[in-house]
């Protein structure tokens, strides 16, 4: 009864048209904001009040290495994703829809397929006795199986696979928004195809590349499943470390501190990305 009257009172006091958001606000507030804030508080209270968890996090070579490795993997994945996605997005932006829709279909299929299924497939493909190693050895390119899994190579391949659709799809939008006449004008001005690419097409698609790249980078930073299954113990990433610290070591204070670091970095980059997408003037490549 008490809760009911309180709710009714707050609805009356609420600004126009905001009532519908109340269930969502309650859900997210109670089961998202409260738990996350509680977790963050734990990083400065568990096992005792103070900043000792952060001191341990930044004082230990092991954890600092995890941070560095996380950034390294995210950076490599982002760079490779951009380089692979750009030509595909370019082609998709201009090719006749009949062919394009097949490629779009494949991208959607890959994106919608269960994450574990895709990662599992790469585990099988990349293992020592997997198809890729057998093929390479069969062709005589290598004598010994290459170490493709449980290392940076495996994580990069698996992550790029997952991130590609998130880069390709928005880039197609960016490229379609560029007037083809602009490129024709550049050609008539005397620009060779390479000059037109470097001086016009690339700078004009840079806002899309930057926004998509930041999104891929942010998602990669916090990724758990794929690095855990395709990566090695020597190059653990932050998300896996957080899970392990809490689940196996039951060190909630340290895990929470690491989670807080991840949260701050992610949210900061997210806000930056929103700025990029919202910004009117192209960022420019001058």
């Amino acid at each position: 009864m008490h809760g009911n009257s309180l709710r009714r009172g707050s609805i009356a006091g609420l600004p126009a048209g905001s009532g519908g958001a109340l269930p969502a606000l309650v859900l997210v507030g109670l089961f998202f904001v409260v738990p996350v804030v509680a977790l963050l508080l734990r990083s400065v209270t568990d096992p005792e009040p103070g900043l000792q968890n952060y001191a341990a996090l930044f004082g230990s070579g092991t954890y600092v290495r995890v941070f560095l490795n996380t950034f390294l993997v995210a950076a490599v994945v982002t760079a490779v994703t951009i380089v692979v996605a750009f030509p595909v997005a370019w082609m998709l932006a201009i090719m006749p829809p009949a062919f394009g829709s097949i490629v779009f279909g494949i991208i959607i299929l890959s994106m919608w397929t269960n994450l574990l299924t895709r990662t599992y497939a790469w585990m099988v493909l990349l293992q020592r006795t997997g198809v890729i190693n057998r093929t390479l050895m069969g062709m005589g390119i290598t004598q010994e199986p290459l170490p493709l899994i449980n290392n940076l190579t495996g994580v990069t391949i698996g992550m790029v696979y997952i991130m590609l659709p998130f880069m390709i799809l928005p880039l197609v939008g960016t490229l379609r928004a560029i007037d083809p006449m602009t490129l024709r004008a550049a050609a008539l001005c005397g620009a060779t195809p390479f000059q037109a690419f470097r001086r016009i097409l690339l700078p004009l698609s840079l806002p899309g590349i930057a926004a998509g790249g930041l999104m891929v980078f942010v998602m990669s930073l916090g990724y758990f499943v794929t690095p855990a299954l395709l990566g090695g113990t020597s190059n653990m990433m932050l998300a896996e470390m957080i899970a392990q610290t809490v689940q196996s070591l039951l060190n909630w204070g340290l895990g929470s501190a690491a989670a807080f670091v991840l949260l701050v970095v992610t949210m900061a980059l997210y806000v930056l990305q929103l700025r990029l997408v919202g910004g009117k003037r192209p960022a420019g490549g001058l």
Partner: peptide, 9 residues
């Protein structure tokens, strides 16, 4: 937000 943060929270 990285899912792992929400997961442990």
């Amino acid at each position: 937000l990285p899912v792992v943060v929400f997961a442990i929270a």
